[in-house]
């Protein structure tokens, strides 16, 4: 298995799917001639041409809607929204059209679009380029939401999402595009539902997704080496639907749950996982579940303040220790 960067894995998925099916197209701001802000579509313009690798105007709602409209006729667009902060502008078409059209047409139409967008705090990009939106999209009925934590998932999730007949929102992360890891050499299709145990443990479960999986793994390592606590890390790569069974199984085994998320706590992944734990396995708990979340501020520009606004591995360690009364 070769090691690929996250962006290379995304690019490979585009390339393979576009080579397979002439109805697969890519669109977004600067994705064509320039190859994409994060290089995710590099070289595809030269290979597939301007009709299939489309540099859009800066009209997020417009081009997202255009992609959705084309999908009504069997086109399979992979739409890149350069930052998830801009995806707010496209929520009308994503939520009101893509997520609802199958239902309100009584099953006559479907919108098999893939919308990719990086969210999250990177490097001093300020309040309007650093926010996350997964908590918004994961609450939308009719829209699948997935979020890859590594190059293998990034590759395999696009592969499945392109072929799936539902609209899929793929939440990426700006800080992860240069992350390198193994990706299968053969074609690989990652499931759009479920979760993965990224590290087995018996004492506490740390639920995480996307970038927070890496904090969780680091934290688990520190907890094991320094404190004798074996944490299980569950990677919630699917946010809608969340894996109720996977959440229940892990909590039933460890009896403790911590949720690590980059977003602010209210109405988010953590609150939803806690609700599922309450509904599925409340009596398995040995301690109240805990969220490790961002602080309740718009992301500041100042580097020190920015770092303080979002959690890290040490915050996860501290949370777990507190749960154990240490």
């Amino acid at each position: 298995m070769a090691e690929l960067m996250y962006w290379e894995a995304i690019r490979r998925a585009h390339d393979e799917e576009m080579a397979r099916d002439p109805m697969v197209i890519a669109m977004g701001e600067d994705i064509g001639v320039a190859g994409g802000t994060y290089k995710a579509t590099q070289g595809l313009y030269d290979k597939y041409g301007a009709e299939r690798v489309i540099d859009t105007p800066i009209s997020e709602n417009g081009y997202t809607g255009l992609g959705i409209g084309s999908s009504f006729l069997g086109v399979r667009p992979i739409i890149e929204i350069m930052s998830v902060n801009f995806a707010w502008l496209a929520t009308d078409q994503i939520v009101n059209t893509a997520a609802k059209v199958r239902y309100m047409s009584g099953g006559q139409l479907e919108a098999p679009v893939v919308i990719r967008s990086p969210g999250g705090t990177a490097h001093q990009l300020g309040a309007q380029h650093s926010a996350r939106m997964e908590k918004v999209f994961m609450g939308i009925v009719g829209l699948r939401v997935v979020t890859p934590s590594n190059p293998r998932q990034a590759y395999g999730l696009i592969k499945s999402a392109v072929r799936c007949n539902d609209p899929v929102f793929i939440n990426e992360h700006e800080l992860m595009y240069n992350m390198k890891d193994v990706v299968p050499d053969d074609e690989y299709f990652h499931p759009l539902e479920g979760s993965e145990v990224a590290r087995e443990g018996k004492d506490v479960t740390i639920f995480a997704y996307n970038i927070s999986v890496h904090w969780a793994l680091q934290a688990a390592d520190i907890l094991s080496r320094q404190h004798g606590i074996e944490a299980e890390v569950v990677d919630l790569y699917a946010l809608n639907p969340l894996d109720r069974e996977g959440i229940r199984d892990s909590v039933s085994k460890t009896h403790r749950a911590v949720i690590a998320e980059e977003a602010e706590p209210a109405v988010g992944v953590g609150s939803e996982v806690m609700a599922i734990i309450n509904e599925e396995c409340f009596f398995e708990l040995d301690a109240p579940p805990m969220r490790i979340s961002a602080r309740n501020v718009p992301i500041p520009y100042n580097r020190t303040l920015e770092k303080a606004a979002i959690p890290n591995a040490q915050d996860v360690v501290n949370g777990v220790l507190k749960m154990f009364g240490k």
Binding site: P22, M23, I25, E51, R52, N61, G62, Y63, T64, G65, L66, G67, I68, G69, S70, S71, F72, L73, G74, V75, Q93, T97
Partner: peptide, 12 residues
């Protein structure tokens, strides 16, 4: 935009 997208699909 949906109409434009339908137009795009027809063209493709």
């Amino acid at each position: 935009p949906l109409a434009a997208g339908i137009g795009k699909a027809i063209k493709l």
